[in-house]
C-alpha cells in the first residue's frame, strides 16, 4: 500500500515539476510550487517524518505562496520570454544532475539498518533522550534533537531567518502603511 502511495505521489511530483518548468504565467507557477510543497509534505508523511511534513506544509505550501504572491504584485505576472541562448546552461544542468545522481549511489537505502546514522547516533537519541531519567526529557525525540542536542544549529537557523528579515527591511523598508505616505 505504501509503495502504491509513493508511486502516485512521486508521479504527481514529476508531473508538477515538468509543468512548472514549462509555464510562463507566474501566478500559475507559484500555485504549482505550492502544490509541489504539499505533495512533498505528503511524501514526508509516508516516511513518518511528521515534523518535517508539518513544516513543509506550513512554510512551503502555506506561507511561501503568500509571500511569493506579494512579491509578484511588485514584479508583474508574466515571465520574460528568453531569447535563443547558448547550449551552455543545458550542459551545466545535465552535468550537475548527473553528478548529483552519481553522488546518491553511495548513499544507504532508505531505512537501511546499516546506514552510518543508525550505528551510533539514532540508537542513543531514541533510547536515552526521553523519559524522567533521560538525558533531555521530552517524548518527542525530534524536539530533543532540535532544541537540546543540536541547539547550536537551531540558533544558527534562527539567525538566518533574522538576517532574512533584516535584508528585506533594508531593501524594501519597514512596511508602514501610514498616513505620512498618503500626505506626501
Amino acid at each position: 500500500m505504501i509503495v502504491f502511495i509513493d508511486i502516485v505521489l512521486l508521479t504527481l511530483l514529476v508531473a508538477t515539476a515538468i509543468s512548472l518548468v514549462r509555464l510562463r504565467n507566474l501566478i500559475a507557477t507559484i500555485m504549482l510550487a505550492g502544490i509541489f510543497s504539499l505533495l512533498s509534505a505528503c511524501l514526508f508523511m509516508t516516511m513518518d517524518a511528521v515534523d518535517v511534513a508539518f513544516t513543509e506544509a506550513a512554510v512551503g505550501a502555506g506561507l511561501t505562496t503568500v509571500l511569493m504572491l506579494g512579491a509578484l504584485v511588485l514584479i508583474g505576472r508574466e515571465e520574460k520570454v528568453p531569447g535563443k541562448g547558448s547550449a551552455l546552461p543545458l550542459v551545466v544542468v545535465l552535468i550537475t544532475g548527473f553528478v548529483l545522481i552519481y553522488g546518491t549511489m553511495d548513499m544507504p537505502y532508505f531505512g537501511s539498518p546499516d546506514a552510518p546514522i543508525h550505528q551510533h547516533l539514532v540508537d542513543r537519541y531514541v533510547e536515552k533522550s526521553g523519559g524522567p531519567d533521560g538525558e533531555v526529557g521530552p517524548p518527542n525525540v525530534v524536539t530533543s534533537v532540535l532544541a537540546s542536542y543540536r541547539g547550536y544549529d537551531t540558533m544558527g537557523e534562527v539567525a538566518v531567518i533574522f538576517t532574512a528579515a533584516v535584508s528585506v527591511m533594508l531593501l524594501l523598508g519597514v512596511g508602514f502603511a501610514t498616513k505620512r505616505e498618503d500626505a506626501s
Binding site: L63, V66, L67, G70, A71, V73, L74, V158, I161, F162, A164, A165, V168, M169, L171, L172, G173, V174, G175, F176, A177, E181
Partner: peptide
Amino acid sequence: TVAAVMITIFYSLCSRR
C-alpha cells in the same frame, strides 16, 4: 522570531504596493 519575521516580510512586500 519566526512569527515576527514572516509578518515583517509580508508588511514590507505589501506596503510597496
